[in-house]
Design a protein around this nucleic acid. Sequence first.
DNA 1: GGCATTTGCCTAAGGGGTTTAGGCATCCAC
DNA 2: GTGGATGCCTAAACCCCTTAGGCAAATGCC
Lengths: 193, 193
Amino acid sequence: MPRAGLTVERLTRAGAELADEVGFDQVTVSALARRFDVKVASLYSHLKSSQDLRTRIALLALEELAGRAADALAGRAGKDALAAFANVYRDYAREHPGRYDAARFRLDPETAAASAGVRLARMTRAVLRGYDLSEPDQTHAVRLLGSVFHGYVSLEMAGGFSHSAPDSTTSWVRIVDALDTLLRDWPAPVPAP
Amino acid sequence: MPRAGLTVERLTRAGAELADEVGFDQVTVSALARRFDVKVASLYSHLKSSQDLRTRIALLALEELAGRAADALAGRAGKDALAAFANVYRDYAREHPGRYDAARFRLDPETAAASAGVRLARMTRAVLRGYDLSEPDQTHAVRLLGSVFHGYVSLEMAGGFSHSAPDSTTSWVRIVDALDTLLRDWPAPVPAP
DNA sequence: GGCATTTGCCTAAGGGGTTTAGGCATCCAC
DNA sequence: GTGGATGCCTAAACCCCTTAGGCAAATGCC
């Protein structure tokens, strides 16, 4: 009986593909074992647990996202950079919905701190260098961008904007435009009454 | 052996409480049966399936959210209405994280169309009546607000903004301010180059 | 109050997914 | 070739979901 050649890397990659096909929450050690035509218990020499598998897929997805973002930002600034960065999120989610969900998987703090998520956060700040924001406004803006990108993409993935005019891409473009306008003219704090 | 007095309503309410305690994805027919000190199979005379339970919790959460939103919007307009509406989402998510997740549960189209979700959508449009937007910009704005509210709340729930300055409430207030500014001066479409 | 019917909760059982323990075959180094 | 490490296996326990069929409590009718 020849060996299947399982490795953590192959399992993680296959898990990511599985996530895109059937949804991240349907990624299961059992399904993965079936895909490799191997008994379930065999995977436990490579993976600590089902949770471990999901964490690895999440880290892979964050890595891929950060890679794409770095490519997109290279040589761009200002609104150009903002739009490119925004599209990285949306395009990744559309191409790899399961992986995108994985990237949103709740990691424990240490794992998160060692993940490509911090690179993504740094790049968000880099995008904002094209605008004239100083602390703490820059942090507010980072949070706003994260919220809009994640919120829009996740509502779009859930089907919220389908079957209704105007089409989703148009709204997306207009929203990115609007964010650019807003960042260029970020309002001062409203004085307490 | 006295009867437990199970009804769909009690089960749904208890499921919602369970969701707030252990997380919506941990809401399980088994856990619910334990809570009522009843055998699992007994719940199946009241619930069609585990999916059915989750759907009912989602509908309850949407109903509660819509109710709070209606209260919040009564007698308010403009930025006042915007801020109140925004806070409904955030406050609800902070008070009832499990229910909030439930409200984001993917419903099949007919169920969604009959849910309080459509009331929420109408109220979002009502908030925008305080601003001078005509179609299709109003739709873009509806989508932007949905994205920001959902995105911010979900990142905040995931712990994204904790343990870092400035505190999350400050960012939230400033972001709502910024949205008000943006809606008041919504940019025209950028002409194609 | 007695009786029939409905209703509600139960036992039983089958199908998955997760995880651990321990065994045998395969692969590699020497 | 042989010894050891490694990789995949069987076995088994535990939890969750779901259906089928049974007994008992509640309800309604007289």
